[in-house]
């Protein structure tokens, strides 16, 4: 019975916590980048929190899309997927449902990546083909059977990123499994000394986090590279690059749907970092004392991502493939070390 009450409280509270914390993250990242760029930058709440509410209050428009409702529902699906992932890593869900495995998370992540494919194919923005300009006239180059929108170019790139770019993330995800011989998330956490029933803040220093071991450190690097790819942060923002596709699949989101997209991105930043903390520090999100160190540690990856992205340009596939394969190889080395 207690389990079920705990389950219900966790199911309600963890998404709220995720929402509240995640709205800060883009602002923090932006602020760090701005300070690196020698300027003041926006207030911390502006890019995440206030922008979200501002878009909620904008006029609801019909996107130019063959299937507007499906297009608008995709960010919502993404948000729920992300909440589902973070709930799977909580001890309360583990005791009731026993679904929290690394395989489940990897599968849900794939769905999350696939959403961009649908988005891109359903969006027909003004910025490329629909721009009122007499392109196909006498004297112009007349070739090409297909006139492709930016979004569809971005879809091709998403596909390439799904197949190659996010390898490091999945390898990083499975280093703990190899290390501790279990795909259960709670098993990984408890192997690092975490006990959800008795955890108090004092126990923090008696934990034995994976990240301080050799395979853990290597896996963490691979996970971080994959994290950048999943977030489409610089240098892996080829799908969203301003230089040609402007924003890629999300071009047509306006008003509340854009708010949804913002939230989806923010929650992705939070949840992927939260999974990292659960796996590599052994502190899962739960309603209790463990939440405080968890949330503090969650800031690590976004801060790192902000610093890396401030110093890198967009990389094209010419550089993305070798980099991604390099990080994958690093992750594989981590796996091998973990096995030994």
């Amino acid at each position: 019975m207690m389990d079920w009450i705990d389950f219900a409280i966790t199911t309600v509270c963890i998404p709220i916590v995720a929402f509240v914390v995640s709205t800060w993250l883009p602002g923090i990242m932006r602020k760090i980048q701005a300070r690196i760029q020698l300027r003041i930058g926006p207030p911390v709440l502006t890019p995440g929190f206030w922008a979200f509410f501002k878009f909620l209050y904008k006029e609801r428009i019909r996107p130019v899309s063959p299937m507007p409702r499906l297009y608008h529902s995709l960010p919502v699906i993404g948000i729920f997927l992300m909440f589902f992932i973070i709930l799977l890593t909580t001890p309360a869900w583990e005791t009731v449902l026993t679904l929290g495995t690394l395989v489940a998370i990897a599968g849900l992540m794939k769905v999350e990546e696939m959403l961009y494919l649908f988005m891109g194919n359903l969006s027909k923005s003004i910025l490329s083909v629909r721009m009122p300009y007499p392109d196909q006239v006498k004297g112009a180059v007349m070739k090409g059977k297909v006139r492709r929108f930016f979004e569809q170019v971005a879809v091709v790139r998403t596909f390439k990123l799904i197949s190659i770019g996010s390898f490091p993330l999945y390898i990083g995800l499975f280093v703990p499994a190899v290390m501790y011989g279990s795909i259960g998330i709670m098993a990984v956490a408890s192997a690092q000394g975490f006990d959800p029933a008795t955890f108090v803040l004092r126990d923090l220093f008696s934990l034995d986090p994976l990240i301080f071991t050799v395979p853990g450190a290597i896996g963490a690097i691979a996970y971080f590279a994959g994290y950048l790819v999943i977030l489409n942060e610089y240098p892996f923002s080829i799908m969203h690059t301003k230089a040609d596709v402007v924003e890629g699949p999300t071009l047509e989101y306006a008003a509340w749907a854009r708010a949804g997209y913002y939230l989806m991105r923010e929650v992705t930043i939070f949840v992927m970092s939260s999974v990292f903390v659960t796996l590599y520090f052994g502190i899962p999100p739960m309603i209790g004392w463990a939440l405080i160190p968890h949330i503090i540690l969650v800031m690590l990856l976004p801060v790192g991502a902000a610093i890396v992205s401030a110093f890198t340009p967009v990389l094209t596939f010419k550089q993305v493939y070798p980099l991604s394969l390099g990080f994958s190889a690093l992750g594989v080395i981590g796996l091998i070390v973990a096995m030994l």
Partner: peptide, 16 residues
């Protein structure tokens, strides 16, 4: 050059 089947138009309002 002959095989080009896909056209990607950019502009006139564009970030680049």
């Amino acid at each position: 050059k002959d095989r080009a089947e896909v056209e990607v138009p950019m502009g006139m309002v564009h970030s680049a």
